[in-house]
């Protein structure tokens, strides 16, 4: 993975497999305090204590198509290589929460990358799952919620390519707005 947005895209797949109906992604870029926080929270089926312990082990996976599961362990190492922390908490039946912090200005911190495209892809590929994306910087905050989008769209599908493009551009422009310091 070369950007944080790709890690997010990957970790969210876990939530989708866990049959979450609502997935919340928050990014906090606190440049002043040199901290970047990424939170991914779902209301999927959750994991037992044993599973949580193994989750970031690359040789543990719940799938049967292959024997390794690198997603969380790669995200963990991406955080730890820039003096960050990685935390995963889960409750069976309630959901799972992955929290990562990183030193914002650390040389090895990966760039955030195409987060707007990632959110747009996730929202359109999983039309029956709702996403809330919240982005905070030192100069503002932006929240994107697929529930609002779906209400607005009525009978037009969120999988429509023109809608996907619109969502990507809307998120891009709004993030740009709050990145003006």
């Amino acid at each position: 993975m070369i950007e944080l947005a790709l890690h997010i895209l990957d970790i969210v797949q876990n939530s989708i497999v866990a049959k979450a109906s609502l997935i919340e992604i928050s990014i906090h870029e606190d440049v002043k305090n040199n901290v970047m926080t990424i939170l991914i929270e779902d209301n999927g089926k959750g994991m037992s204590k044993e599973e949580v312990k193994c989750a970031s082990d690359p040789y543990f996976t719940s799938r049967i198509t292959r024997k390794v599961g690198m997603g969380l362990s790669l995200f963990k190492s991406a955080a730890e290589q820039c003096s960050g922390t990685f935390n995963i908490t889960s409750e069976p039946g309630l959901g799972t929460k992955v929290a990562v912090t990183m030193q914002y200005a650390h040389l090895d911190r990966q760039p955030l990358g195409d987060i707007a495209g990632t959110i747009a892809l996730l929202a359109s590929s999983n039309p029956y799952t709702d996403f809330i994306y919240n982005h905070i910087t030192n100069s503002g905050e932006y929240t994107f919620n697929t529930k609002e989008i779906k209400t607005e769209l009525q009978d037009v599908s969120i999988t429509n390519p023109k809608v996907i493009k619109f969502i990507r551009e809307m998120i891009q422009e709004n993030i740009k707005e709050i990145n003006h310091l």
Binding site: E148, Q154, V156, V163, M170, E173, N174
Partner: peptide, 18 residues
């Protein structure tokens, strides 16, 4: 300043697509 896309623009797009 350039205008930032909002839900109102989405409504326009929706009407168009419909």
């Amino acid at each position: 300043m350039t205008k930032v896309k909002s839900l109102a623009d989405l409504k326009k797009l929706k009407d168009n697509l419909q």
